[in-house]
Amino acid sequence: MAEMMSTPKPQSTPKPQVAEREKQRSFNLHVNDKYYALAFLGPSLLVLGVFVFYPMLRTLYLSLFLTNNVGRPTVFVGLKNYVNLLTSSAYQASLQATAVYVIGVVVCTLVIGLLLAQMAVRKLAGIQWFRTIFSATMGVSVSVAAIFWLFIFSPSVGLFDQIGKLLHLPLVQWLTTPGPAMVAVIISTVWMNLGFTFLILFGALQMVPQPLYEASAIEGASPRYQFFHVTLPMISPTLFFTSTVTLIGAFKSFGLIDLMTAGGPNNATNLMVYQVYRDAFLNGNYGLASAESVILAVIIALFTLLQFKFLEKRVTY
């Protein structure tokens, strides 16, 4: 739900005359603006400074040190924490697991979300009910989702296990075998994401002008052709937006992992944020965990920049 509000909305697009207005505005400015600015912006700047800017610098600083058993930086080691991390097979595995998870989540969320939206956009009797149902997971928080799915995947009492038994399929130990555990975590995340993705894509599909479809139908285009040549291009900006939001969200995943697998089995679901948590708040290895934080921040910053670039394009249009 969270990122929904940042969807580019047509009404927030500034009109061309904004620059003009801006100029007019500056005529009306008063001398004492400085004090107002301090009063108006002060609180925000203080909070952002203390809890966003300073910590980033501090994390960078800590990442160059070894920390002692009460968490104080004691020995300067330069980039050694980074070198150790990038050459450690465990950390490489964590990066790889994160990549698999992120790609799995983004692809499945978009494909299923699009399917839901495409099905719900048609006018059928009772379609309102389906639209409500499809958006329902927006009201689910991470721990509730984790508990529901934990039960479904749990051995011997879980739903999948019971279905497997009924059909005499080989027993899958969902959460204790590396591959299936990753699948289980991806399924749960995708389910949790679907409500939001559905609503955004559904909104985009509704905005596609009907005449486009009618015109192509007259030309004898198949629904399939229409989907790939009318629908997809028309909603591609929204698709891009949704995918970056989902992607960044997936990189930050922690709660589901913590509740469902605690990074296991065999570190198969040990995603980047979980690794930071484990090294810092379980092992007390704050220097190393800071280096991991920096790497995580760089990756997320890159994708956010990408998203900004896109938003900028939309806004200037």
């Binding site: 994390t59 990189f251 930050k252 944020v273 810092a280 934080s293 997320i300």
Partner: peptide
């Protein structure tokens, strides 16, 4: 651009 998750320490 800075994720809170990377600044918890």
């Amino acid at each position: 651009m800075l994720p809170f998750e990377a600044e918890v320490i």
